[in-house]
């Protein structure tokens, strides 16, 4: 029972450490990366490049595995359709990311760095997720 929580906790902690070392929990750093037409800071390209390189290796291993090491099977997204919802939602996300220089992972990680601003951002984000859920329930 306890073991089931250890893996996500350790993964989350390594993730949070990586976000902090890479500069993703520093809104000025993030907005500097998004300031492509101004004083551009390419640091986040190295963060994304490093993460994608390691994960590409992990996917190569995953293709040779029957099942994950500590679970019954793989639960992975398998959709390939490009929808207006995907594009519109991603467009909105980019706007919010640009405004405050925070995305979901760094928002949670920053709870340990600047608790009040991070909590305000995370609470608003969860409200936004709730709004999206209501919106979808109405449309369905």
């Amino acid at each position: 029972m306890i073991r089931a929580f250890v893996l996500p906790l350790v993964s989350g902690a390594i993730f949070g450490a990586g976000l902090t070392i890479g500069g993703m929990t520093d809104p000025a750093r993030v907005r500097g990366f998004l300031d492509l037409f101004g004083a551009w800071d390419p640091t986040l390209a190295f963060v994304m490049g490093g993460a994608v390189a390691v994960m590409a290796f992990a996917w190569a291993i995953q293709r040779r595995m029957q099942r994950p090491a500590f679970a019954e099977g793989f639960s992975l997204p398998d959709r390939s359709d490009i929808t207006a919802r995907l594009v519109g939602g991603s467009a909105l996300f980019g706007i919010g990311w640009g405004i405050a220089g925070l995305c979901p992972g760094p928002g949670f990680a920053a709870l340990a760095i600047a608790p009040v601003p991070a909590a305000i951002f995370v609470a608003a984000m969860l409200v936004g997720m709730g709004i999206a859920r209501l919106w979808e329930a109405r449309g369905a």
Partner: peptide, 17 residues
């Protein structure tokens, strides 16, 4: 930092699927 993020994501993928 990116390498650690990739490692964390790899742990979720290969460990928890």
């Amino acid at each position: 930092g990116g390498g650690l993020i990739g490692l964390a994501a790899a742990l979720m993928l290969l460990g928890a699927g």
